[in-house]
Design a protein around this nucleic acid. Sequence first.
DNA 1: AGGCTTACCTACTGATGAGTAAGACTACTT
DNA 2: AAGTAGTCTTACTCATCAGTAGGTAAGCCT
Lengths: 223, 223
Amino acid sequence: MTKKDVAGATPPPRAKRLPRAVRERQILDAAVRVFSERGYHAASMDEVSDVAGISKPMIYAYLGSKEELFAACIQREATRLMEAIGGVVDVDLDPEEQLWRGVLAFFTFVGENRDSWQVLHRQAGTQGAPFAAELAEGRRRAVAMISALLDRAAGREGVGAFAEGRTEPLAAALTGAGEALAEWWLEHPEESPKAMARRLMNLSWMGFGNLVLGRAWSPEKSA
Amino acid sequence: MTKKDVAGATPPPRAKRLPRAVRERQILDAAVRVFSERGYHAASMDEVSDVAGISKPMIYAYLGSKEELFAACIQREATRLMEAIGGVVDVDLDPEEQLWRGVLAFFTFVGENRDSWQVLHRQAGTQGAPFAAELAEGRRRAVAMISALLDRAAGREGVGAFAEGRTEPLAAALTGAGEALAEWWLEHPEESPKAMARRLMNLSWMGFGNLVLGRAWSPEKSA
DNA sequence: AGGCTTACCTACTGATGAGTAAGACTACTT
DNA sequence: AAGTAGTCTTACTCATCAGTAGGTAAGCCT
């Protein structure tokens, strides 16, 4: 009479024993899902443990406090995103081509990993918490990457064009535009990653000035 | 000996009797400050009441629940922002000029009302709460305004250029870029509103394609 | 078999914070 | 002066969670 006698509950009352590494991954997966749809504060550790199919103390034993858990999520997902983008950007290429590839990789990633994306994006404006460091750090890496790209672009053309060499704010603006487009995408899921990437190129590479004149950007042309 | 004897506290122990309208404004002011620096969840009603120099039940009596209070903040500040921008955009003007003025008004507002701005921006990605409606609504208004501007721009030049007539996502991207720049501005407060507005025009009107070639945007030229 | 480690659990504590009950003070009416 | 309407307070209740104490069971060595 030790166990329950009503029996038959779909998830086994006592979870199967699994090695730590596996459980840690499961917990992180669950945490990403919960944090992404509730946000940091509204998410509860109880819900994370439910979704993970494990009891709460295990989370504390393996991943530490709520903040540490969240930081771990941020770090893992940020790394995945950065690798997805970094993987397609070849430094020897034409900057325009690099930008196109990077932007396309970004939207592809977001399309295939909504939760990963949202957990990074939804809490973006949070400061005052220790995990703000992780957030800011991830963002800084992204901005630095784009900023470097723009610097190379300026260099290749032999022009120090970018407003007194300040490409960093422009890179920040570009990421902001990307985030906003990704957000818009959530309400228009019928769009393809390519179409989204194209929009961002139109805005950021061509600018409204050109668009108004009927000149649009397309991936087919070279220069 | 009724009051505190350590004395010197700026807000009197028992608040002076004031008409409801005045108190409501004070409470809203305090709420905007607290929400802007803590975010919705981390903010507590006790802190709001402290900052407002009044006791908690007054807030509930006048402004309702925490959610209603927050919604009221959003609505008031969103309206102020929209009016600041709407006030300088003259529909008869050149679209480029309109965009410039609107963008400049935006950064001017943000520079002078950091709290108002942050309370709107920091919670932007929150969904699932009733006040998400207010947030989304405010954003929709802003995007619609810019989108209409772009449509007029396309119309004036006689071109249906904007990627199959979809100016709305581009407008969304532009607001995202503006938000990201405003964020960047917080870490570089030495910049002027004009310099910030110029950056956004460079990105959105000229595009990187032009910037790379040494063509930058400036408010002095006309076309 | 007995012992040891690691996975795993139920059932609590303690703090924080939203929201309220019940009444006190002030000022304006009549 | 006595009523009454509106301002303002102290001092609670009650729910929600983060985090933990203390213990059970499963595998793995000898």
